[in-house]
Design a protein around this nucleic acid. Structure first.
Lengths: 129, 129
DNA sequence: CTGGACCTTCCAGTGCAGGGGAAGGTCAAG
DNA sequence: CTTGACCTTCCCCTGCACTGGAAGGTCCAG
């Protein structure tokens, strides 16, 4: 399979596939005599895995770690479990931050809704923020 | 006031202040004969406003819009109110996305926790993701 | 007059995940 | 033989908010 076909099958662009290669996530099986990249069927599964990882909010670096474990012949289950646990903690922290921010912004918005532009001095740009 | 003093008073760096100037958020009152930037006391209030806006998650571009309205001599209250409403909607959307993602990741993690590495074939890299 | 703290401009890089486009090689159909 | 689709490498650009550093000018105390 050449890069264009792999891109069509997986829904990625050829740009992305070359970028993944540069990032150490995807390795062509080889090259044709003319230098074209050649991929096997396993590349499709690999890209599917990358897509699932991205959908779970993992970074390419994290996904790469898992792929490296697999490429060393070991099952990455434990590694994936740890990764998901870490991701879960990060998500909870992010949610807490965002909820706090939402409360702050909601409060500001409530105050601004009942506000009167005429009472607004320029000395602090806007007193509703 | 020179840039270093303004930085010390507001807690910003001189780098940031010059960056804000390039971004159209902060304008020195003038320059000394030797080219040093000169700021008035209003610059402190302006930077406080920028800090509050940043704390509410507004982008510098959004903050700049408000400052531009103020610089045209109009009270930016209405604009700020709209901005906060927009920001609130964005936060709600972001929270919903993040909560959905958290549920997905939690599900994956639960499945991975009870998993057995030996039953994990290499054909999809890892079946727990 | 010298040293050090301060200031200036300009250029470049950070992290993340790619995208744009140029210049050129390859391959199959017509 | 030519056209057009495909491929190659190369380097730069995106958005966001800065940060780092080099090379040089200014100002004040000792």
């Amino acid at each position: 399979m050449r890069i264009g076909e792999l891109a069509a099958v997986t829904g990625a662009t050829t740009k992305t596939l070359r970028f993944y290669e540069d990032s150490g996530l995807l390795h062509p099986e080889g090259r044709t005599t003319s230098g074209y990249r050649q991929y096997g069927a396993d590349a499709v599964a690999r890209l599917d895995f990358i897509r699932r990882g991205r959908a779970a909010g993992l970074t390419l670096a994290q996904i790469r770690e898992v792929l490296d474990v697999r490429d060393q012949g070991r099952a990455p289950c434990r590694h994936v479990e740890d990764l998901l646990a870490t991701r879960l903690r990060a998500l909870d922290a992010q949610l807490a931050d965002l909820q706090e921010l939402r409360a702050t912004v909601a409060q500001l918005h409530d105050a601004a809704r009942g506000g009167d532009p005429d009472t607004c001095g320029a000395e602090q740009v806007c007193r509703y923020l």
